[in-house]
Each structure stands twice: as structure tokens, then as C-alpha cells.
Nucleic acid binder design. Structure first.
Lengths: 174, 174
DNA sequence: CCGAAGTTTCAGTAAATACTGAAATTATGA
DNA sequence: TCATAATTTCAGTATTTACTGAAACTTCGG
């Protein structure tokens, strides 16, 4: 028999999946990918493609693409069960690991290309001998320096053990 | 006469504007908004709507919407010149100020709503007395705690004076 | 090596997002 | 106050991004 608690949990989970999916949009992550991640984060057991399709009411292609994308991020991993031919997926549930994965991925997708552009413009404007040219070069230089610096800091922080990061943060908040 | 340096600068600037605009996409910022920001960041003088339209080859409506959005973020400000009827715009050029503005805005748009969802799910799953229910509640709790904590830390850092932040960062990288 | 179960790809379509251009509104100074 | 310059709004359209569903491909036990 399905108790009242089971119903409440089912609703809470569905709510979390739907809302987290909507949020994904603001994170540069598509809705489905965020929903699958939410689903797996709150699922005790590893589940297969067909169950994902059914729970989220999405097509096989969509489920497949986004599961693979999540695997490539490292936010979920594939599980092979003995005697089972198909693949199952389970989420990384440790919050610090999730954070470091997302931080790294965002650096790769958002910061590194920006640094590339800045360095190129820095080169292209080197030695332009007019007041405007020097001002432009100076602005590029400041931006590149700051972004590079911030990127290193973020890297360092997300490479820390959770305990160390926690200590550091606690000092900041005190 | 327009020297070779002037041509080089013009090209470098156009390149920066175009590429920065393309990057904006990966930042949850639309292309035009990022382009206008790039244009103004590398423009020594405040410029008006019509010049923005011409330099970027965009419509008045588009220019208007995105200029206002940038003003609302605080990344650019309006300038009124005496004897001029129209408004001019100039960008905030200080990299630390740009960083704190972007950090605050992203927290508001990305982190705060996530915290809201997590707290609601935390409430909805309180006291569900099954093993699965407790696991769900626990996972929500860990996520909410971490996200809230990280949000506070980010706030604290982006509220610092640049010099202090620099000191802190230098310590991290050493 | 065959057939079924499972996975991957992708052309076509749907949905979300951004942009245009012109009309409506507001502000200015003569 | 009026004429006009400037700003704001928004319906319609274009562009970009995401999703479907079915076909092609791969894998594995028998």
C-alpha cells in the first residue's frame, strides 16, 4: 500500500525536478539536462534511459543527449549491473564535488574563451601610437589581468579539499 | 588624415566588440547587450543611442532596450551634456566594480531562486517518515546549506575593497 | 552468425528568445 | 503653448536553441 508519506515524497520530488529544471535555464544549462540531474540527485537507485524518459515525459533522443552530456560533465556516471544489458545512471551527490565540477566547467566555457579574446586584442593593439590606441590597450590589459587572476583564484579554490575551503570561508564570514 | 594606427585601432575595437558579443551568449547575456557593453568600455567618450545604432547596425528598439538594461545593472550610466537634448551613455571601466556588479546580479538571478526552491522542498519534505523521505530531506538540506553558505561568501568577497580582496587572493595563490 | 535489445544519430519541427520598425508617448526650448 | 526632437513601447518577424521520433547502427547471448 502507498502511504500518505509516499505521496508527499513523490510530489516533493516532482516539484524539485520541475523547478530545478526551470532554474537551469538561468544557468546556461538546458531545462532537460537540469531536470535529469535533479531527478538523479534525489533518486537513491541508479536508473535507466527508459525510466528517465517516462518520469520526465521526454523522447529517447532528448534523454540520451542530455544523459551523455551530464556524463561528460562528470555530474552523473554510468553503472553496469550484472545480468543487465542496458546502462544505468547515478548522480554524484556530494555537494562539494558538484560545486567543483560546475566551477571547472563554467571556467572552461565562460572564462577561458574570454581570456583568449582579451589576449588577442591585447596583441592587436600593441604599439598603436595614438592616445586612443594607448587607452584601448590599457583597458584590454586591465581586463585580461583581472580575468586571468580571478580564473586562477577560482581554480585554486575549487581544487581545495572541502575541509580547507570551509575553514577559509569561515574566516571570511567571521 | 587617418593614419595606419587609426585603422588598426578601429579594427581591434570592432573585433573586440564582435567577439565579446559572441561570448555574452555563454554568460546568459544577449549578444547585443554584451556588444554595447564592449563598445562603451572601449570608448573614451560617452555616446548616444544613434551612434550605438550605427556602430553596431541595430535597430532603435534593440539599442534602447539593451542600453536601459545595462543601466539597470549599473554597468553603464547616463550622461546629460549641457545644451544637448539627448542622453549619452558611458561605461563603468573599473574592473573590480564591473566584477562586483556582475557577481551581485548573477547571485540575484541564479543563486537566490535556487535557494528558494531548496528551502521550499526542505519544508515540503519535513517529517516524511520513510527511508526514502529522510534521504530526500537530507539531500535538500545539504544542498540548501551549501548554496546558502556559498552565496554568503560570494557576497562578502564582492563587498570588499579591491585592495583587501587582492591581498586575500594573493595569499591563496602563494 | 543471427535476432533481439539497446544505443546513437539526425532531419524535421516546435519552442523560446531576440530584433525590427513604426506608432505612441514624453520632454524641451522657443 | 506649440513644434519637434528624443524616448519608449510593442506587435510582428527572424533567429537561435531544444526536442521528437524514427531509422541506422552496435552489442551480445544463443
Amino acid at each position: 500500500m502507498s502511504s500518505a508519506d509516499d505521496v508527499k515524497l513523490k510530489q516533493a520530488r516532482e516539484d524539485f525536478v520541475a523547478q530545478w529544471g526551470a532554474l537551469g535555464t538561468h544557468w546556461g544549462i538546458n531545462r532537460t539536462m537540469a531536470q535529469i540531474h535533479a531527478l538523479l540527485m534525489t533518486e537513491p537507485e541508479a536508473i535507466g534511459t527508459d525510466e528517465v524518459m517516462e518520469r520526465l515525459q521526454i523522447s529517447r533522443g532528448n534523454a540520451h543527449t542530455n544523459l551523455k552530456e551530464l556524463v561528460s560533465w562528470g555530474l552523473i556516471r554510468t553503472i553496469v549491473k550484472k545480468g543487465e544489458r542496458r546502462e544505468f545512471f547515478e548522480a554524484e551527490k556530494d555537494v562539494w564535488k558538484i560545486f567543483t565540477i560546475v566551477a571547472r566547467e563554467r571556467r572552461r566555457r565562460e572564462i577561458d574563451p574570454a581570456l583568449g579574446v582579451l589576449h588577442q586584442c591585447l596583441d592587436d593593439s600593441r604599439g598603436i601610437d595614438t592616445p586612443e590606441g594607448r587607452a584601448f590597450h590599457e583597458q584590454m590589459s586591465k581586463l585580461a589581468e583581472f580575468v586571468g587572476f580571478a580564473s586562477n583564484v577560482a581554480d585554486r579554490v575549487s581544487g581545495m579539499k572541502y575541509g580547507i575551503a570551509l575553514q577559509l570561508a569561515a574566516r571570511l564570514l567571521s
